[in-house]
Design a protein around this nucleic acid. Structure first.
Lengths: 227, 227
DNA sequence: GCGCCGGCTTGACCTGAATCAAGGCGCTCG
DNA sequence: CGAGCGCCTTGATTCAGGTCAAGCCGGCGC
């Protein structure tokens, strides 16, 4: 981790771009910009470990952060993938205690650190950001319910199909790009890399998709939905 | 579902007992009591189904509510078990859209229904309840991360052991009572009833616990922690 | 009392996915 | 250019836990 110096305008712009802080007045952003600290992490560096005491939370400005848990045997389950504008490690701000999971930089990541106290102080003056935070936590809750559903009630083929359809819905086109390395995707879907590889192969043989590196083309959307 | 008539004082007391609304002034509780609707559900009745459009959320006053998802084959995964004072179905209040899961009454349940608009109107006047809500969502997020961790990274024996230790920590004594039927517990832990039965038997044979109906006695806490 | 029903247990079997092991392909770096 | 290293694929094997199928037990209505 390196401290990172951002000039006030760019910090301000970065803050304003977050859905969390949208609708905040310029002077509030200025205030936030003053009390936040910019940091840069290199690929693979950890922002925090599950169990660390939390003094505040992070706001991702640039890059991608992986939030995951590790089993006693080293196996990993990815919980969230966070991009620019997303808060990271916010749970202990409202509930106290430690971070529930570990956050790792995937590639270079720039972010802001906001102390718990500073954020709560701002929230007391501008309660609407609490609504923004509630919306974000709600979305995460929904995503986690889907993940639990996947892990417990669906077989791997269905999980993968759903994920591909999700990506396609976001992208809008039939040619989608996997947002991470296949190994990471496997861990996000709760399967081994070998199984992911085999399952992609199977779907390809069934003419439902075609795979080229990290690019996947959806050939038969209906067929995928049938799983 | 039956409409339920509560006199103002008891409704008021019920509201005040929720951690969500703690610290609210008497007049705010009065206001809430006026805008909320009390309802009673019989065992097995559903408060809402996953996918239903949400006009508001529920506050459990008495009894226990099971929040779960069902797989296409009918298998069930319990997401939360909610007792008195807990809000239920609150996610769509902040994010819009439908309920993410299905809520079922386990035994007779009394609750209040609060419309989205009424709650948000109150929140605008008393932002501290947003902090209360954030704390509750944070706790649920933490619980869900633990559930994902269990399902993906732990084997069934470890899940069961952890659950028993959780119960014991809450109860404080070595003799703990399962809060639901064993079938429901199995579904909560993401395993089949048969497997739960076998695993309880195994732990018993290892002299780590002893089971009598719904009562479990922890014999070797260290041994359980080792899993 | 007797039969029935729902919830639990037990046993036999099956299968989906993990694991282990061995390459292959495409990098970057010396 | 070739060595070495990540990352991915492919094949063989294993195993945890699900499914299916019987019984068992306790409560409850008749």
């Amino acid at each position: 981790m390196k401290p990172l110096t951002l000039d006030a305008p760019s910090k301000n712009a970065a803050l304003g771009a977050s859905p969390l802080l949208q609708g905040l007045a310029g002077q509030d952003l200025d205030c936030l910009a003053r009390i936040s600290v910019a940091r840069r992490y290199d690929s693979g560096e950890m922002l925090f470990l599950a169990g660390d005491e939390a003094a505040g939370f992070f706001l991702v400005l640039d890059g991608q952060v992986k939030v995951s848990r590790f089993g006693s045997d080293g196996r990993e389950q990815v919980i969230h993938l966070l991009g620019p504008g997303q808060p990271c490690g916010e749970v202990p701000v409202f509930e106290g205690g430690a971070f529930p999971a570990t956050a790792t930089a995937l590639g270079r990541v720039d972010c802001l650190f906001l102390s718990r106290a500073a954020f709560l102080e701002l929230a007391a003056r501008r309660p609407q950001i609490l609504l923004g935070m509630l919306a974000i936590l709600s979305r995460r809750l929904r995503a986690l319910v889907d993940l639990v559903d996947d892990l417990s009630l669906k077989e791997v083929t269905a999980r993968l199909a759903r994920h591909l359809l999700d990506l396609q819905r976001e992208a809008g086109v039939d040619r989608v790009e996997l947002e991470t390395a296949k190994g990471t995707l496997a861990s996000r879907l709760g399967m081994s890399p070998e199984t992911l590889s085999r399952t992609l192969g199977k779907l390809q043989r069934q003419r439902l998709i075609s795979v080229d590196g990290r690019t996947v083309r959806i050939l038969d959307r209906g067929g995928l939905e049938g799983l």
